[in-house]
Design a protein around this nucleic acid. Structure first.
Length: 592
DNA sequence: AAAAAGACTTGTGTGAATATTT
DNA sequence: AAATATTCACACAAGTCTTTTT
């Protein structure tokens, strides 16, 4: 009998016992025991049971009245070709469809899906007219919005049913939420930045492409009728439930658990523990790399300068990338000569380095910082006799750097510096900024501390399209509130005068009522002003990424406890689920 | 030891859900 | 109640780092 059949799914708590709301102390004891007891052999689970992924719905051919025109003439396409056509037709309003590379890649892959007859007719993308199809899809999405409450409710229920059936698995003793149980539908690949493969066809994934991972003694997921899985394996050294190879880059995609799961939470906790270990030896490491700036060996100097950048500027490691396969972006180790400029003097500062390059997701990193003289001199040395497209650190790569870091501290890699610097900055800033003030003011302080980290990590965003307008609206509200306030103050004054004259109980009460009104409006005004400040400062900065990936949540939990700020003000529901371990663990005196 | 494959984390954009305004 | 603004959840791309293969 499989382990699972003895445990009814719906009765199981989605919260692993490890994260249950026990008292902090007790759970730590459990955790330590749990840690020691668990899998010293590198295995990740003993029992894993799930229902497999949900596939994209099959393609439904368009009604005949929706036409595609080639060279002005209507043309009915074969179903496979038509499906690919719809991917493009749906995107007509998007900038992608105007880009040469996108169009070229799309057309090439589209032709592969055509019948030989279609292929011989359709030879020029510019003669294709998709506008009828485009309008049809727009009408469809409009109709979806206009659906009745009942219809919407029905869809919602169907989604919920799917979630209940396929959205959970059992890993060891716990029912866990799966992160992405739906297989990515076919479509056109949208790379970021100048991606050479944008517009290529992402093909439909079939059961025959899927490798299932589960435990031997579990009830294996069934492939859809008439199909087979590529493979069913039982590898408990990995955490994924299913995988397939994607056709654009040939890389593997996985179905894994939600961040609220034990396996992810534990790993997250571990990550911050590593960063805390770095805290203990970061001074030693800094002294070491400063020493290394003087090394006789070029490779050691390069390593030391790169590490200095990673530490001071929170740059990413910068792995090598295969040319022509992805957008041209860099990190620290892959910086090229063309990405930095040296200024011996700039304004009133000496030894200024200007960075200007595209990082992850083709987000621009631009920064000017003064560095120590030795770093500057080293950089000049590294630049000697090089072309703009040459590597700045030609004797270094991430593997060399990480090997060195591993020797300095167990588990140390380049990205630990980002985690460490982000978390320590938050803690420091919270100490510095938090005022003994109202809750909204405290939250503003928190957001400002969070913002300092986001700036460090270069988590930028384009200002929202509606930013100016929403700012104006807020200002209008503030003005109105101010008017209200002065009106209320006048009334209070009048009431006071009235009371002075009459000295009766009724007028005394009136004074109190007016006083309260003034107070209430003052509070409201203050809240609005804080909101405006926060929003203005946040114009081009995204807080989410650092909050989710770089800031030890225990710092925030401890801060909330110390400052009497409800945790709900800092973390929404999903975030509280992800950080359940920290909420359970951290007391108000927690130190990162 | 270098390259490729594999596993996992980090990142942005987008549409749905929800809150707020009109 | 409809329109609009804001937040949230998710999709999925793009990194880092480890493991395996050559």
């Amino acid at each position: 009998m499989s382990y699972c059949s003895s445990v009814s799914l719906h009765k199981m708590t989605p919260i692993p016992y490890f994260f249950c709301s026990l008292t902090g102390l007790y759970s730590v004891v459990l955790m330590i025991r749990w840690e020691e007891e668990r899998y010293t052999d590198g295995s990740k689970w003993r029992f894993l049971e799930h229902k497999g992924p949900v596939f994209a719905p099959p393609y439904e051919p368009l009604p005949d009245k929706v036409r595609f025109y080639y060279d002005g003439k209507p043309m009915k396409l074969s179903a496979p070709a038509e499906e690919v056509t719809t991917f493009f037709a749906k995107m007509l309003d998007h900038e992608y469809t105007t880009k040469d590379i996108f169009r070229k890649n799309f057309f090439k892959d589209w032709r592969k899906e055509m019948t030989s007859e279609e292929k011989s007719k359709i030879t020029d993308l510019n003669k294709c007219n998709f506008s009828d199809m485009n309008e049809y899809f727009k009408a469809q999405s409009e109709a979806r919005k206009q659906m009745s409450k009942e219809e919407k409710q029905k869809i919602k229920e169907e989604n919920e049913r799917l979630l209940q059936e396929y959205g959970f698995c059992i890993m060891d003793n716990h029912k866990e939420r799966i992160g992405n149980f739906r297989i990515e539908p076919p479509g056109l690949f949208r790379g970021r930045g100048d991606h050479p493969k944008m517009g290529m066809l992402k093909r439909r994934i079939r059961p025959e492409d899927i490798i299932i991972n589960c435990s031997k003694d579990s009830k294996h997921p069934k492939p859809p009728p008439g199909t087979k899985w590529k493979e069913v394996r039982h590898d408990n050294k990995v955490t994924w439930l299913a995988s397939w190879t994607e056709n654009i880059q040939g890389s593997i995609k996985y179905i894994m658990l939600n961040p609220s799961s034990r396996i992810k939470g534990e790993k997250d906790w571990q990550k911050y523990e590593t960063a805390r270990r770095l805290k203990k030896c970061v001074d030693r490491i800094r002294n070491q790399y400063r020493d290394d700036w003087k090394s006789k060996e070029m490779r050691i100097r390069q390593r030391a300068v790169a590490l200095y950048f990673i530490d001071k500027l929170a740059l990413r490691a910068g792995n090598e990338k295969e040319e022509g396969e992805t957008a041209d972006t860099v990190g620290c180790c892959s910086l090229r000569v063309e990405h930095i400029k040296l200024y011996p003097k700039m304004d009133d500062q000496e030894y200024v380095v200007e960075f200007d390059f595209l990082g992850k997701d083709s987000i621009r990193y631009y920064n000017r910082i003064p560095v120590e003289k030795r770093v500057f001199k080293n950089l000049q040395l590294f630049l000697e006799n090089k072309q703009p497209e040459d590597d700045l650190f030609d004797r270094l790569n991430t593997s060399i750097l990480n090997k060195h870091l591993q020797e300095l501290m167990d588990g140390l890699t380049a990205k630990v510096f980002r985690t460490y610097n982000a978390s320590i900055t938050l803690q420091q800033q919270l100490k510095e900024l938090t005022s003994d003030d109202s809750i909204p003011a405290k939250i503003l302080s928190y957001n400002r501390a969070n913002r300092a980290v986001a700036i460090l990590c270069n988590h930028q965003r384009a200002p929202p399209k509606t930013f100016e307008k929403s700012m104006q609206n807020l200002q209008t509200k503030i003005d109105e509130k101010q008017n209200q306030l002065s009106a209320a103050r006048k009334q209070l004054k009048a009431a006071k005068a009235d009371h002075k004259a009459s000295h009766d109980d009724k007028s005394k009460k009136a004074v109190e009522v007016k006083r309260k009104a003034v107070q209430r409006i003052e509070e409201q005004l203050m809240k609005l002003q804080v909101q405006a400040t926060d929003r203005e400062e946040n114009k081009q900065i995204a807080l989410g990424t650092s909050k989710l990936n770089y800031l030890d949540p225990r710092i925030s939990v401890a801060w909330c406890k110390k400052c009497d700020v409800p945790i709900e003000k800092i973390y929404n529901k999903t975030q509280r689920e992800k950080f359940a371990w920290a909420i359970d663990m951290a007391e108000k005196d927690y130190e990162f």
